[in-house]
Design a protein around this nucleic acid. Structure first.
Lengths: 183, 183
DNA sequence: CCCATATGAGACATTGATGTCTCATTCGCT
DNA sequence: AGCGAATGAGACATCAATGTCTCATATGGG
């Protein structure tokens, strides 16, 4: 009978990713609980979003850990990273746009940590000679977020097959649209 | 004394891109007019967003025209396209996320036209042998939107210099992060 | 089996945004 | 200067979402 906090968060994430303006009532119904109960666990909409942010950060850091982004060739590390992040992509897409709202406040330190780790990966790739140096690590990081968000939405709306998600993102991010010269 | 409708729309676009939940009152103040006047020109928030959508579509189609995306090598056409769309990127970023809300309703036919034209460009690049064929035109189009949005936000928050905007997007989209083999 | 605890349903006041209206003022134009 | 049209300021009702509360009910452990 006690509410499954994790289940509530995941339902909320799924709903809010589709409809970021969903009501507390809709969120509650999506999780299969009453609005009163939702309120008992999350003081308000803000607290809910913060909890989702924490979840997103935790999943992202777990994904970076699981992908062992510090090890092996940088390109392979990027591929592992995208694969590991994929399950959290929709949540990240929601938080990515939601973050635009918190313009005044300082952003959660977790994002800074994640940005730094991803940037470090791209920098490592540059220093090893695998990645070009005229695209800054900061931009590559930003672009990764953008592609994850686009990919998540495209999958949600059926414009891209879910099974192609990681392939499309890693291939575009690493290789781009131009055909490689056959060597 | 008559209100400059275009100026109002552009102010609204600039504000809403930064803070998508801005109030009608904030939008009015940002444009330097009163809420009453704003209301006289746009029946409501919905009408305002629709007007912004029309503006975005118009600018996008004008950009595609100006870039002559049907002419010349596809890669060059993509570069011209990004350059031409750049001024509208922030507005597009706003509309791109806002579109997620209109889940029920059918999307404006203008977007379909634009999607088709951009997809056709990518397809043309594939057929000419310039672009790889394992990334679908639909995905490349979607990725372009995502990169434009990421780029616009990154510029707004000072993480990327405005002058690098088009370079970063076109280079990543076309070439990817991997270093090309020297041939 | 019974009790403590958590939940569901719903009432309620509050808040913030919205849309409408009025009226005085200002601006442009003749 | 004078007229008409558009604006600004603000009042007002409305509406939706929120947050709080109560009470009946169900669940699960002892």
């Amino acid at each position: 009978m006690p509410v499954d906090r994790d289940h509530v968060l995941r339902s909320a994430a799924a709903l809010l990713t589709r409809k970021s303006t969903a009501t507390m009532d809709e969120v509650a119904r999506a999780a299969g609980i009453s609005r009163a109960t939702l309120h008992r666990h999350f003081a308000g909409r803000d607290a809910l979003v913060r909890a989702l942010e924490s979840l997103g950060i935790a999943e992202c850091e777990a994904a970076l850990d699981a992908a062992r982004v510090d090890e092996g060739p940088a390109a392979d590390a990027v591929r592992r990273m995208v694969v590991a992040i994929e399950p959290a992509a929709a949540l990240l897409a929601f938080l990515y746009t939601e973050n635009q709202l918190f313009e005044g406040e300082e952003q959660n330190a977790g994002w800074t940590r994640i940005d730094d780790r991803i940037s470090a990966l791209f920098r490592r790739g540059q220093e090893s000679g695998a990645f070009r140096i005229d695209l800054t690590p900061a931009w590559l990081t930003e672009a990764l977020y953008g592609l994850l968000a686009s990919g998540a939405w495209a999958v949600m709306e059926g414009r891209v097959a879910r099974k192609d998600f990681t392939f499309m993102i890693t291939e575009l991010l690493l290789g781009g649209a131009l055909r490689r010269e056959e060597s």
